[in-house]
């Protein structure tokens, strides 16, 4: 009996210690998060961070810089993450132009990943070493940082993990260098060049759109609107870069008749209805359309 009591007092001591240790480490002096990386952000905060990358890219279309920033989030496929966020944005009734910006960056990144040369510029940004301005460029700011021209784009960061950020910070596009983002020839509207019935049971009633510019290059970020009796939907080219940056698709309801219109101009395509197709066994199924637009 005395032996058992001995064990109990040990357990009591352990519990008292555990209580004291937990109280100290969780209440009195809890661990504070410091020096965290974007990869540790919550999904919602990652979305906001990604949105900021897109906003910065829209203002300064430097795809290498945007790609390096997105790499900090460690998405398995940054372009796919952008596409998903663009789709979510549209689904939640968000700004179409913002979703378009997401699509543009997704397309630009996919183009580089696929090694596709971009039509209007080199994929690699030009490095510019800007001479020291000699201090305060804004004139009235209270902070007088010493701005030194970087000798190389990958100056040693404070820690190894921040190498990407440093590379981002010191690479700038030279003034006048065309952007790495493929864009359509300004002004010219898109016209329907080909309307092809697609009888493929695996695709079903898929309305596929291919858009190219006057040079035949695929154009990402073009908003496509489909309307039907009692409904409307919008989608963008470039959200499925594996099928081409000028590609977009929409699944039709076989019972509906659609009108398709590009918001960048051109005449609407009317009377789009899923065609009836027959497979090798004589079974009928709803087919789709492939619409090719060009400037």
């Amino acid at each position: 009996m005395e032996e058992r009591r001995g064990y109990w007092f040990l357990l009591t001591g352990l519990l008292i210690g555990l209580l004291l240790g937990s109280l100290y480490s969780m209440v009195i002096a809890p661990l504070q998060q410091v020096d965290m990386a974007p990869i540790s952000l919550s999904a919602a905060d990652k979305d906001r961070y990604r949105g900021m990358v897109v906003a910065a890219y829209t203002a300064n279309p430097d795809v290498s810089r945007a790609r390096a920033r997105l790499a900090l989030l460690n998405d398995p496929d940054p372009a796919a993450a952008l596409m998903t966020q663009a789709n979510n944005l549209l689904a939640q009734g968000g700004s179409a132009s913002e979703a378009r910006n997401f699509a543009m960056l997704a397309s630009a990144i996919s183009s580089i990943n696929a090694g596709t040369p971009l039509p209007l510029a080199a994929a690699t940004p030009t490095l510019m070493v800007t001479p020291d301005t000699g201090g305060n460029a804004a004139g009235t700011a209270p902070v007088q940082p010493t701005v030194t021209a970087p000798s190389a784009p990958t100056k040693a960061p404070t820690r190894a993990a921040s190498a990407t950020v440093k590379a981002v910070a010191t690479v700038t596009l030279a003034a006048g260098v065309p952007t790495a983002t493929p864009t359509a020839t300004p002004g010219a509207p898109f016209g329907l060049k080909n309307r092809e019935q697609v009888c493929d049971a695996t695709l079903g009633a898929l309305l596929q759109v291919q858009i190219t510019d006057a040079s035949g290059n695929p154009v990402p970020g073009v908003e496509v609107r489909v309307t039907w009796v009692g409904g409307e939907d919008a989608f963008f080219t470039g959200l499925k870069p594996d099928k081409g940056t000028g590609y977009a698709d929409f699944t039709m309801n076989p019972d509906e008749t659609y009108t398709l219109r590009l918001t960048d101009g051109g005449r609407p395509v009317t009377e789009l209805k899923a065609p009836r197709c027959t497979d090798a066994d004589g079974k009928t199924f709803a087919g789709g359309w492939l619409l090719s637009f060009s400037q």
């Binding site: 352990l14 008292i16 210690g17 209580l19 004291l20 240790g21 480490s25």
Partner: peptide, 13 residues
């Protein structure tokens, strides 16, 4: 035993 408990508590927290 108390010291051991404190160590475990700190390790958890």
């Amino acid at each position: 035993a108390i010291l051991l408990g404190i160590a475990i508590g700190l390790g958890i927290g």
